[in-house]
Amino acid sequence: MATSTPEYELFLSQLKPSDLPPLPDLPLKLRRLAATHPSYAGGNKTEPFETSEESGTASMASYKTFEFVGDTIIQLASTLLIKATHPRLSCGAMTDIRKDLVSNNTLSHLSRLYLLPATLLAHPAQLHLLRSSNLVQAQMMEAYIGALETHHEGHEVALEFCREMFKPLLEVSYLNRKVVQLQASLVKLGVSGAAGGEGGGESVGGGPADVSILEEWSKKKGKLGRVVRYERGESSGASNAPRHEGTLVVEAPGMEPLLVGPILGAAGERWKTVQYRLAHQANLELKLVPPP
């Protein structure tokens, strides 16, 4: 499952510069080189196999070497961030999330937020087209990060910047891919949404995935004080087919307590099914799952 989810793409499109760490500064010479497209000076000339030791960065005609280094740092930073934040993920899941973070779509959007395309140096006849190219914009993001490695004579500053830059994107990718995976698992098991109930609460669907998503949200790293509490009311109806009633309270710092329900289950419906429906409604209110 390599394609980004629609929810991730929507979040990416709504990302603002204030959501990101500031772009580390570079000396003018390196900043200019990191913005130089191959068409600017060398056109389509073949690059030399190896430059002389004396020439150093002066012999670099474009950002291609910086791009190469930056791509490696971005891959490493995203991998280490995913592993540190969600160490129990499978390699396949980590790979899918990393693909979200390092995709040209993500990097080009970040590049635009940092205003890098406006600094592009390219052949005048191609400048407008190249500045609007997602691929070139992504390359400029990689090149800037590669230039940071050269400037600081090591990758630590560039690595830390990438980790901070990817943090807000990581959690969105993780949660949305987990929703998709849980939904796919439920389909394989033949589990569908619960039947609508009656009583004081809104009739909603729900399943085990909803409980897992809400629990994951409450235990999210760095988010202390989040509480999810199911409250079971009095049962009614026949003893051999009782109707369970329940409410759900969600509390978190900085938000008003969320009260879901009461929801009254159908005759013979399990208490756990009522919990599924409560959790589903809470997930909708908290925007943890897309609306139906």
Results as ranks from 00 to 15, higher is better:
Met1Ser: 13
Leu15Asp: 09
Leu20Arg: 07
Leu20Phe: 13
Pro21Asp: 12
Pro27Ser: 06
His37Ala: 04
His37Asn: 08
His37Met: 06
Ser39Glu: 01
Ala41Phe: 15
Gly43Arg: 11
Lys45Gly: 15
Pro48Thr: 08
Tyr63Val: 03
Tyr63Ala: 02
Thr65Ile: 14
Phe66Glu: 11
Val69Ser: 07
Leu80Tyr: 06
Ala84Asn: 14
Ala84Gly: 13
His86Asp: 13
His86Arg: 14
Arg88Val: 13
Ala93Pro: 05
Met94Ile: 00
Asp96Thr: 15
Leu101Gly: 07
Leu101Thr: 08
Ser103Glu: 02
Asn105Lys: 15
Ser111Pro: 05
Leu113Gly: 03
Leu113Glu: 04
Ala122Val: 10
His128Val: 14
Arg131Phe: 03
Ser132Cys: 01
Asn134Ile: 00
Ala138Cys: 07
Ala138Tyr: 05
Glu142His: 09
Ile145Glu: 06
His151Ser: 13
His152Tyr: 15
Glu153Pro: 01
His155Met: 09
Val157Ser: 06
Lys167Ala: 15
Val172Phe: 01
Ser173Pro: 12
Asn176His: 14
Lys178Gln: 11
Ser185Phe: 11
Glu198Lys: 12
Gly199Phe: 01
Gly200Ile: 07
Gly201Ile: 11
Val204Cys: 14
Lys219Glu: 15
Lys220Gly: 10
Lys221Phe: 08
Ala241Ile: 00
Arg243Tyr: 09
His244Pro: 07
Gly246Val: 00
Gly246Phe: 00
Thr247Glu: 04
Leu248Lys: 12
Val250Gly: 07
Glu251Ala: 11
Gly254Phe: 03
Leu258Trp: 01
Leu258Lys: 01
Leu264Gly: 03
Ala266His: 05
Gln275Tyr: 01
Ala279Phe: 10
Gln281Asp: 12
Lys287Phe: 00
Pro291Cys: 06
